[in-house]
Each structure stands twice: as C-alpha cells, then as structure tokens.
Design a protein around this nucleic acid. Structure first.
Lengths: 326, 326
DNA sequence: TATTATGGTGAAAGCGATTTCAATGACAGG
DNA sequence: CCTGTCATTGAAATCGCTTTCACCATAATA
C-alpha cells in the first residue's frame, strides 16, 4: 500500500507538502504539479483511517432506521443517501427492527465511535431517548417526529389526519372504524388517531371508541384487526388505518368477508403506497414527501458539519402533505 | 475523551496491559480486575479509528445496492444487517440508483478505504465489473447473479421461470405476452425471459416474439408496456412480467382497459410481493428467500474474515425458490 | 537601508491504539 | 544451587496522516 511518504519522496518534497496539496494549503505551482504526477503514477489514495485518527472526522454519518424493508423508510433512506453521496459522506446504516432499546444502543455505539453526525428515523421517543439525544456528542437530526429541543424534520400528522377525517366524514355511509398503531409512536400513533378523530368530530360524525383497534405496522396486523372489526360489528363500512400497509391488510379482510369490491372508498391509509395506488385505483390516503424529508434532514446536518455559511444549520422543519383520492 | 492511557494510570498498569486485557492476552487476575474497574469508572470506550489504523481492520462491511426502495433489495439488506449486527460489524451502505458506473465507483471507494469486505447486490455485470471484482483487495460476495470466478449467492432464475412458464402454459387461454427487463441484468433480464420462453415452449405453447416488451423495473414501466401490448393485440389475455412491481403496473393497465376483474390469472410476476399478494388474492409468482440470501452471503463473508474454522468460507451458493399461486 | 508582510517549506510532534521485545520473578527439575 | 520454562509485564516502535512551528526567501513598505 503506497503511502504519503512514498509520494513525497517520488515528488522530491516532504509529506507535509503532499498533505497540504491534498487539503489545499500553501503550495507552489511546480511542486503541486510534481505531486499530482507522483500521485497518479503511484495510484496513491490516502488512508481514511489515519486521517480520521488525526482529524477526528470520519466523513461517516450514522443512520438509524426502525426497519429497512418498509416503503416509507426506504424512501427516506434513499433521500439521505442521495445527499450524503453528493457531499462526500458515507452512510453507516443501523436497522433496529423496531426495538427501541437497539435504537439507544446504536445511538451510543455511533457517538462513541466513528460517525460525524446522526440521522435518526424516529418512531418511539421515550425519556431515555430524549436524554440520549440531548447528550449526544455529535450533531443529530430526527426524521418523522417532532421532539422539543432536537432538530427535527417531520410531517404534521395531526393536521393531515384531521383533514382526512374531515373529508371522509361526509362521504361514508355506515360506521367508520380505525386501526391505529401504538401511541408510543407519537406521530403515527397518537397524532394520527387524534387528528382523525377530531376531523370526524368536526364534521359531526364522531368515531365510536369501540371501533378502534391497534395494529403493528404490518400488513398482517391490519388484516387481523380488520377481520375482528368486521365480525364484531357488521355495520362497519369503512376502515381508516394509520398506514397504507395496514390498509392493504384491511382491504384483504374486507374482500374475504364481503367479496371483492371496487377497492376504493372502503379503507384509507397514510403514505400513498405505490402498489396500493396502482392495484386499487387509489384509496384515500395522505401523501408525504418521504424522499424530501431525507434530503432536507441530511442537508441540514451536513451544513452544520461543514460549516456552510448562509445555509441554515440545525433547526426544526415541518414539511407539507397532500390528501389523495378524497 | 478518556483514552487508554488514562485507564492504565488509574489502574496502575501500563497501557499495554489494558490493551491485552481488552484483546485477551496474558494478564493476571488481579490486574484484570483493576482494569475492569477503571474502565467502568471512567466509561472508557476504545477509539475504533486508532484501532483501525493500527490493525488495518475497521469492522465495516460495504454494501452496494442498486436501489434501496425496492422490496427485494430492502429485504436482502435487512438480512445483511441482521447478521452484521449480530457479529459485531457495521454496514456502510451505498446506493447506486441503478447506475452501473456508480457501482464501480463505490467498489473502488470501498476497497481503497475503510471496509473489511463487500457485499454487492448485483444487477448488471459488465466486463469492467468482472475486472473490478477480480482485483478487489478485500473479500467480496455477490447477491443475485451467478458470476464465474466470484463468490455468489443467487437464485436460479432460469429454472424458476421455466417452471412458471410451464405451469402457466396450460391454464391460460388466449395469448401470453411478456414484459421483461434489460438483458444486461443476466438474472432478471436474460435468465427469466429465456426460462419462461423455454417453459412455455416445452408445454407446447411458445411465446410470440412480437408480444415481448421491455420495462425498467418500475411500476409505471410495467403499466406503460402493458397498455401498449393491450392496444397492439386485443387477444392478449395474460401478461407475464419479470418482476412483481411491473406486474402491478400491468394489472392496473388491464383494469383500465378491460375493467376490474378478479385480479388473478391475468398477470404473473417474480418476487411474491406482499402488497400484490394481499390486494389481488395472489398472482402466479415466484417466491425467493431474499432475506435468506442476505443472511447467507453475509455469514459467508464474515466467516472468511473472522477465520471461522469448520464453517464454510467464500463459495457459490444457489438458493431454492417456490412457485406461488399456480 | 531597515523593516515588515507574505508565500512556501520541512522537521517533528502528535492522534490512540496494538504489538514486539527484552526483562522479570516464580517455580520445577536436575 | 543452577538452569530452563513460563506466565506476566512495561517501554517503545509503529500505523499514516495532519498541523504546528520555526525558518527562509522575496516583495512591499517605511
């Protein structure tokens, strides 16, 4: 492995000069040229490990996600990766498989170890999380939740759910049921349910608390909850879900119990899943710019790290949403 | 930041002793105990950068994927991450967005830089790829393609497509069309099309070459190709696709042109997508153990790196498949 | 002419670990 | 008592880079 010293010798300069050449310090034109040639000749690449040890910066960003194989998360991740690549950073990906404690574990691992910054695609935010975020040694940005005191890029789930509920209230005859997710997930659990309820109520068609069920983000859990709802109360004619994935499960349940329908105006979701859109013609749902949230969050983080002036540093950013098919 | 020397001083030993304690060298019981206490007291964690510089190993694995937001890839990635986490490695994720040149770029970046090994979720394998893989400084495993001379974990797309074609040939009345992907993708493009054609032919119902179209892995491209097929030949009654995603697009096209049907026995795909399964009741498709392929490939790679004896090192591994809904 | 700046330069001091090496004391065998 | 093992030990050398620092020309200023 050719190292800096070799290049320096070949170019007839000191390794300090080579380092300066590489990092843009004082260097005369002719030596710069000789160094450039020597580098090309030897195929030298600098050891990021040595550089990291010396400078303390690794050009690595830790990305913590709750589950990689979900459409929303993988879109966010795509956005993050896009910006990271463009700006010369690399992504250290940690998948917690929805286990909050592994989230903390990685948060720990990352800051003690090699990353310059962290993007946390957040679900549950416990007090322990808040503490860990607070005491984080490197800059950190959250995606998907709005947490006081931390930089966040999020969508207004309450508002979106309110609008969805309000819009739906009038167009559904029969009872509306709701399949949510754990309220520990403030955004997808608490905010969406409360917003939806408030929207229905505002439209004069309040949600029957007996028709609320809890799913676990999966298609199967949506299916199971829907089956139960349909068997408990045959008057249920519409099932609103906290995610499109669960809505797909609910749809299957409805198909099984009631026969195939035209697929729309029987369930609603969140996320505007492409498959659901194509295969059902479009259920009422909320479109979020997932990719954008990854992009925005990452730009924010890197601006702080690179000290880009004029550009905004860490702050909280609310992104817009769009009601679909209502 | 507390360093090894601090721990050593507190414990009244040399830093060499602390290093030995950490790495399992000769150390007496009482000193071990004192070091243990000192570490707990100070909250010392060792700098992976310094360690990496000295040992040359980063405990980082580079993972190159063509696109993160696709079900198959994200399942594979989940499998990779699972093993990596369990075995004390971390994942450096590079998303090439389906650009073959960025694949090469990352291959380069990774081996010059900080990773101990590479998992390449492969699509197109050009000669340049082959050369890059050949000359790779670190161990590398491919997923999804079977390339001579490289360690590969793959599915037998030809065989699966053959079986699918053969099974389908008898049950479809009317013409069968095919939407494939670029044949530069040997597995998903070339093998699937050829296998499917051979299966149909073997069953005495050969594919009309005029009814073959090319998509680009996306739902929309499946939709577009299907629209065209349906307008070109009204006798087309079944559209086989190289991926479930394109099949979903084709299904939407069929729905639009011919009205909603019962959703099955009109298209087929590859990948056994969960949404498709739930929303259509199940189209004929091939189930691959994507997660398993990630797991197997990563275990193989880490076995080589860690020098696990008894366990298999780098080799090529063909995984099974399963026909669904035929 | 006497002083400052100013662009350029290399030697050398780290960054925080791992690992070689020679030295130590204890202890069994002769 | 002497010698050879053997488990332990710390000093010191690296790993490959960045960065300070002192220093040197040369140009600009007084």
């Amino acid at each position: 492995m050719v190292k800096m010293k070799d290049v320096a010798e070949l170019a007839g300069v000191s390794s300090a000069a080579v380092s300066r050449y590489l990092n843009g310090g004082y260097i005369s034109a002719d030596k710069a040229e000789r160094i450039k040639q020597a580098i090309e000749l030897t195929g030298y690449v600098r050891s990021s490990q040595a550089r990291a040890l010396r400078t303390g910066s690794t050009k690595l960003i830790g990305v913590i996600v709750p589950k990689i194989n979900s459409e929303s998360v993988s879109r966010i991740t795509a956005g993050i990766g896009q910006v990271l690549g463009r700006r010369g950073y690399q992504m250290l990906l940690a998948n917690t498989d929805n286990a909050a404690d592994r989230e903390l574990e990685y948060l720990d691992l990352f800051q003690n170890h090699p990353v310059d910054g962290i993007v946390l695609v957040a679900t549950m935010i416990t007090d322990e999380h808040r503490r860990a975020i607070e005491s984080c040694r490197v800059p950190i940005v959250l995606i998907g939740q709005n947490v006081e005191g931390a930089a966040c890029v999020y969508h207004d789930d309450y508002e979106a759910a309110f609008e969805l509920g309000h819009a739906l209230a009038g167009r559904v005859d029969g009872k509306i049921a709701y399949i949510g997710v754990t309220e520990e997930d403030r955004a997808a659990g608490y905010d969406r349910r409360r917003g939806f309820e408030a929207g229905l109520r505002a439209a004069g068609n309040p949600l029957d608390a007996a028709l609320i069920r809890l799913g676990s983000f999966t298609l199967d859990s949506g299916y199971g909850a829907a089956r139960e709802l349909l068997s408990v109360d045959p008057d249920v004619s519409f099932i609103a879900c906290a995610t499109d994935t669960m809505a797909a499960g609910a749809l299957r349940a409805i198909d099984e119990v009631r026969g195939m329908g035209e697929g729309i105006h029987r369930v609603s979701g969140f996320g505007d899943n492409a498959f659901l859109r194509a295969l059902t013609g479009g259920i009422p749902t909320v479109h979020y710019g997932y990719l954008t949230s990854g992009v925005e969050a990452t730009n924010m983080l890197l601006n702080t790290l690179d000290g880009v002036e004029g550009e905004s540093g860490l702050k909280t950013l609310k992104l817009g949403h769009q009601l679909m098919n209502v």
